[in-house]
Design a protein around this nucleic acid. Structure first.
Lengths: 151, 151
DNA sequence: CAGTTCATGTAACACTATATCCTTCTGCGT
DNA sequence: ACGCAGAAGGATATAGTGTTACATGAACTG
């Protein structure tokens, strides 16, 4: 399992920074703050949640579009993921591995579990490709109830 | 393949009406107009697209919330589907069969292909259930390029 | 130091969705 | 007929999400 490690806290920030720098992007103060806000949310956060958090932290308002720009950059570089059905973002705990990931979204508590299942993802891609479609970005998100909420 | 037929045109409207009435819901003029607008769009349409179309057809403005109400009802009764990643709706061509459906979304032309693959859907549900999660509504949508646009 | 490029700021706008309260219509029982 | 209850839809406001266009600033490069 070389290369697949789940980071947290400071190590996560470092991993994210490494990934961005490695891709030839800059790790600016603004980007660091946005990533931290996302990581500290500990769950899905909307762009506006992040904007509010960062605005408060630095005492100066950040405009939504700045946040969107940076979140898009994060997603493009795999240090964050977008949860499509929730209009939300989460920090990616293992930026080194590229997966079509699966999100389990609890409709009770709002919590999100992140799975990677390449078999399933590949089946999905194959099924699409079988119809002549060229798959690019499979979105696999399951709404339901998490174990603790189901009790 | 009893019960699985793809309707179109007037037959589709009739099938939708049948399904709603069968579920104890009313088939009102407003609902008919909204369904027709959706069916005639021939592809994914946002609630606001539908609102505009219906507003124009009858010369009186329909408010968004009315459209949302009715589209939600349609989705609940399986005569329309919501494409989560596009904030859009499409008429369901075979309202009798209930599937966790898969959408192939062309990022070029905006067209959507609708697949039903119960094996894949069940794998997805099973994979989620295996972690203790209680799956309710799997969302499976693949962004990419359709055959004609890929050429 | 001018020219270029990239990051961020500012402001306005467009799109998506929901909340609240109200009116109308319809069916139903007496 | 009357009055009631419930469902459908209308009116208005507001919340939440996302984008566009343009300006500024900071850093690198010749």
């Amino acid at each position: 399992m070389t290369g697949h490690h789940e980071y947290q806290g400071q190590a996560l920030t470092e991993a994210a920074k490494g990934a961005l720098v490695n891709a030839g992007e800059q790790w600016t103060e603004m980007r660091a703050q946005i990533f931290d806000a996302l990581a500290q949310a500990g769950g899905p956060a909307s762009a506006y949640d992040v904007a509010d958090a960062v605005s408060k932290n630095r005492g100066k308002r950040v405009a939504p579009n700045s946040v969107y720009r940076i979140l898009d950059l994060f997603v493009a570089n795999n240090i964050a993921k977008r949860v499509e059905t929730q209009n939300a973002y989460i920090a990616n705990a293992h930026p080194e591995c590229v997966h079509d990931c699966i999100f389990l979204i609890c409709q009770d508590c709002g919590g999100i579990t992140h799975l990677d299942d390449d078999d399933l993802a590949n089946s999905m891609r194959a099924r699409a490709a079988g119809t002549g479609f060229r798959p690019d970005n499979p979105v696999m998100e399951v709404r339901g109830t998490c174990e603790s909420c189901a009790a």
